[in-house]
Design a protein around this nucleic acid. Structure first.
Length: 483
RNA sequence: GGUUCCUUGGUCAAGCGGCUAAGACGUCGCCCUCUCACGGCGAAAACGGGAGUUCGAUUCUCCCAGGAACUACCA
């Protein structure tokens, strides 16, 4: 058996869709698991849809996710070029299309747009069209004359109306389709560019791809590919169709879902590795119970036979959970790089931001979660006096008032403003009063934070905001909220 | 409309003829605790329906229902 070679073949039309990312990931994993090669090919055959800079997005995304191609536009192997528009210039597709015409498997079509338009009909609000093989019946002379006259043409695949075509998919098994369902799809467009379908087959063969990994949405066009391979007498590659990734409504993930692309997710504060990890588990499951996998670990464990058939909903909740796991496990310096800018958005004062970052590390799932958690460091929010009511510690506003009044002079006299020292002070006071520490600490925490929930205890907060600010906030509590 | 595919808890999913039908997220409870979170423990929650095949079907076959994808000179 020859070496496994897979490819990721995106169109440069914008951001990297998560469905595409998963296809790329599975392609990569299949190749790497088998010790094979992973290739990148750019399918820029639609000049209208091409988006400036999209190729860079693709390349950058692959860098960031670690899906590094062994061959591609930037590191060509022996089967280049790796960009289809360049292959068009080399005349590759036209050459093979003409071979097909010789064999009677394809034909020139000169139909006008108007004529094609007349073939469309609307069923259930959907516009559907099936070509009627009008130009198949043109005589050789007519074709020659049309070509000589410079009439625009396309080349279509010639699929018989009778019989069936079947193909094998590794995941879905044998799939058989009646030929009458198969449209005479266009192979070469009137601008001389190949369509995706044709370029794909030609390139996968020419470039030695052994396993074709792609989305389930292409499952129904696969039989047409088989006909092409057979017509050429080429070996059919192994097909691996991945199940669809859907939104909560069970529809194919689209731009409007807001998290449809890798970049969207990163923008929202997700970590690259977490996205890769989560996406790997959409449609595939490892053998054990483990869910957290680095890319190398995925390579080691990935067995494409365990890819499932049913579509998977992209669950933001679980994505967030997994991201939280990655943040918790993240090397602190790297964490700081992403956490600090987020903290600076709300904390402008010269406080110990590293300490604040430490506090929130186990409490966030995505980086923007930080904002609402640490805003009180910057400024004491307006709060409700009822916060001083706490059932567990049996704290009331009245009791809080006494605690804070008692503590104010004690804390004013306190020199060592570190967490441990402050905690000792509060504990000592509690013992002297014969109450639980929590009873004392609750009102202090409310006073210095103004919030019901904080990412740290009272004394940690005091340490960070400092003595002066702490005392000031306690005074405000006494004067404004407990009076 | 046609074709193709899919159908285990709300979600991701194990299961590949015999099980009290894993596990994870989420939800809820308890513990830990200077609030919350982390961590620990626990609970509720599923085989779409109907026929077969079989001693026995979540697992095999068929039908139905539901869902999805495709049906472009887009990929």
């Amino acid at each position: 058996m020859s070496e496994v070679k897979t490819r990721f073949a995106p169109s440069p039309t914008g951001r990297m869709h998560v469905g595409n990312l998963r296809t790329a990931l599975y392609s990569y994993l299949i190749a790497k698991h088998a010790g094979g090669k992973f290739m990148l090919r750019i399918e820029d055959t639609d000049q209208n849809r091409e988006v400036e800079g999209a190729v860079d997005i693709i390349k950058r995304t692959m860098q960031e996710t670690g899906l590094i191609p062994d061959e591609g536009p930037d590191n060509p192997g022996t089967v280049g070029p790796y960009v289809q528009s360049e292959r068009v210039k080399a005349g590759i597709y036209m050459k093979y299309a003409k071979q097909l015409i010789e064999k009677g498997e394809a034909y020139y079509c000169f139909c006008t747009e108007e004529r094609l338009q007349s073939l469309h009909r609307v069923v259930d609000g959907k516009d559907i069209m099936m070509y009627d093989k009008h130009c198949l019946h043109l005589s050789r002379e007519e074709v020659e004359a049309n070509l000589k006259a410079g009439k625009p043409f396309v080349i279509r695949q010639n699929v018989p109306n009778e019989g069936t075509t079947k193909f094998e998919d590794e995941i879905y098994g044998t799939i058989e389709v009646p030929n009458s369902e198969l449209d005479d799809m266009i192979l070469i467009k009137s601008d001389g560019f190949p369509t995706y379908n044709f370029a794909n087959v030609v390139d996968d063969h020419l470039m030695g791809v052994t396993h074709v990994v792609r989305g389930n949405e292409y499952l129904s066009s696969a039989p047409k590919y088989n006909r092409l391979y057979n017509a050429f007498g080429w070996e059919v590659p192994v097909y691996v169709h991945c199940p669809l990734i859907t939104d909560e409504q069970h529809h194919k993930l689209s731009k409007r879902s807001g998290h449809s692309s890798f970049e969207d997710l990163i923008d929202q504060g997700f970590v690259e590795e977490a996205v890769v990890n989560y996406v790997a588990l959409l449609g595939w499951s490892p053998e054990g119970d483990r869910e957290i996998f680095s890319l190398p670990e995925l390579v080691e464990n990935f067995d494409y036979h365990h890819i499932s058939k049913s579509p998977a909903v992209f669950d933001m909740k679980k994505m967030r959970w997994m991201n939280g796991e990655y943040i918790k496990a993240m090397d602190f310096d790297r964490y700081l790089e992403r956490a600090l800018p987020e903290i600076r958005k709300v904390v402008k004062k010269d406080l110990n931001l590293t300490k604040i970052a430490e506090m929130v590390k186990t409490r966030i799932e995505i980086f923007p979660d930080i904002d609402d958690m640490v805003d009180f460091f910057e400024e004491l929010p307006d709060y409700d006096g009822s916060l001083y009511q706490n059932k567990k510690w049996k704290v009331t506003p009245e009791k809080s008032k006494k605690v804070l009044s008692d503590l104010l002079p004690v804390l004013s006299a306190q020199e060592d403003w570190t967490n441990d020292a402050l905690y000792a002070v509060l504990k000592e006071y509690s013992q002297a009063e014969g109450v639980k520490p929590g009873f004392t600490i609750w009102p202090v925490r409310i006073a210095v934070s103004g919030k019901q929930v904080t990412p740290a205890g009272a004394t940690e907060i005091m340490e960070v905001i400092g003595k002066e600010e702490s005392l000031s906030r306690i005074r405000i509590a006494l004067e404004k909220y407990l009076n």
